[in-house]
Design a binder for these strands. Structure first.
Lengths: 242, 242
DNA sequence: ACCTGAACACCGTTCAAGT
DNA sequence: ACCTGAACACCGTTCAAGT
């Protein structure tokens, strides 16, 4: 028998919960229907198909991501704080973020963070292509690090553990180094160390403008300036479409 | 009717080819059987099941990965060359590398590269925990960057392209920066810029030993020194097992 | 406008049976 | 020792039919 008032939002809520907890691969249309107490085919009416259901979850995630407030006294400190905040946000929603990534919406998701970084780069006296390099390098650093961390925690017990691979012999008579490489890395510390190192180098070029030319970028005005981010939620009549 | 002499290696070769070209998700047992001209169930006899078939491919990939020869005059240049070579290797076998990663064999795969990096760190006068930091920071940097690149090239056309997001207004009156951030990044250049910046910072601490303590790591000898990497190809009788 | 069950074409895997 | 087809329990999706 039919149940009353199944809404699109109800479907999305249930799906989001399942994906957040178990990842998209464990979201099955039949399982979702069972959880909602409807027939599988009802879900199809509301969301079209599995793929566009996931698309909708991604849209939600992107618009849910809040602003980032830098903290710290110097631009370098504030850049690191942005990087840390970003890392936290990404690590908290691993599955959904991965889906955002796969769908090519990363740029839109990162816009607020990029704008913060631009502000700090300017405050540190960096402009133009150099500032752009800093922004992108930090962004890639954060996203890359998070991806590696994710892969690490998903990975099963390391088969030949690092401790077995590193001994004093292979470390060139540097037992302290062997010891350090044998244990698991402190991911938070490694992250901060790397971001600080990267930031220090790239901000240093602000002091010595002739030091390391980032690239030969022409200084031009963009062709068609736009006011703000276009809101592109698609108009839809019959939810699923074909 | 039965065909003659299907071997385990034949199965692995065909599977490796399919995975290399189309990724693991497009490797189906039925498709593989069709390509080999056998019944699906024959494959099960040789490799057990789909999961252990993929495991076998991963084992192959890890042992296939060759040594890395650093080039350049200074340690910094040689470190960057190792990073570039590593990036190339990873980008060339994306699917297989991802599988190695998922199965937690990354450490073993990276051991040669790590050893090269240790040698260069020592040559630059960096030892102990600081050298370990450099090795790991570079490794994470490379792997992270490659993962981001992979995600980018897999991603469909960016929905709100970066050009639409960045205009002079949102860039704080820095049209050169807006222009730089609006176009697609030069990934190779960004990679080299980042690795160079990271390396420069982390090697700099070799000159000023009191500058930035990496951590308070005790200097101890490891407990059970071992000679080399254990060869752990499992003994197997009936290939599949259960 | 919304929901339904039946059916289709796929999966990976197991099993008893062949030679 | 090696290969086979049949069968099972799953998928996502479509469709004609209900109300």
């Amino acid at each position: 028998m039919a149940r009353a008032a199944l809404t699109r939002d109800e479907v999305l809520d249930a799906a989001a919960d399942l994906v957040r907890r178990h990842g998209p691969e464990l979201l099955t249309m039949r399982g979702l229907a069972a959880r909602l107490g409807t027939a599988v085919t009802s879900i199809y009416w509301h969301v079209g198909n599995r793929e566009s259901l996931l698309d909708a979850l991604v849209e939600r995630t992107v618009s849910d991501l809040g602003e980032i407030r830098p903290s710290g006294r110097t631009p370098a400190q504030r850049i690191v704080s942005v990087a840390r905040a970003l890392r936290r946000q990404l690590l908290d929603r691993p599955h959904l973020i991965a889906m955002v990534h796969e769908r090519g919406l990363t740029e839109r998701m990162f816009l607020p963070a990029q704008q913060s970084l631009v502000r700090e780069a300017h405050a540190a006296g960096l402009r133009g292509a150099r500032a752009a390099d800093l922004v992108r390098a930090v962004q890639f650093q954060v996203v890359g690090h998070v991806l590696v961390e994710r892969n690490r925690e998903r990975a099963p017990a390391q088969h030949p553990g690092e401790q077995e691979l590193w001994d004093a012999a292979s470390a060139g008579d540097d037992p302290a180094l062997a010891q350090a490489l044998a244990g698991p890395p402190d991911l938070e510390r490694l992250f901060v160390t790397s971001v600080e190192a990267l930031t220090r180098s790239l901000l240093a070029s602000a002091d010595a403008p002739g030091g390391r030319p980032a690239d030969d970028r022409r200084t031009e005005v963009p062709k068609a300036p736009r006011a703000s981010i276009p809101d592109r939620r698609p108009t839809r009549r019959r939810p699923g479409g074909r």
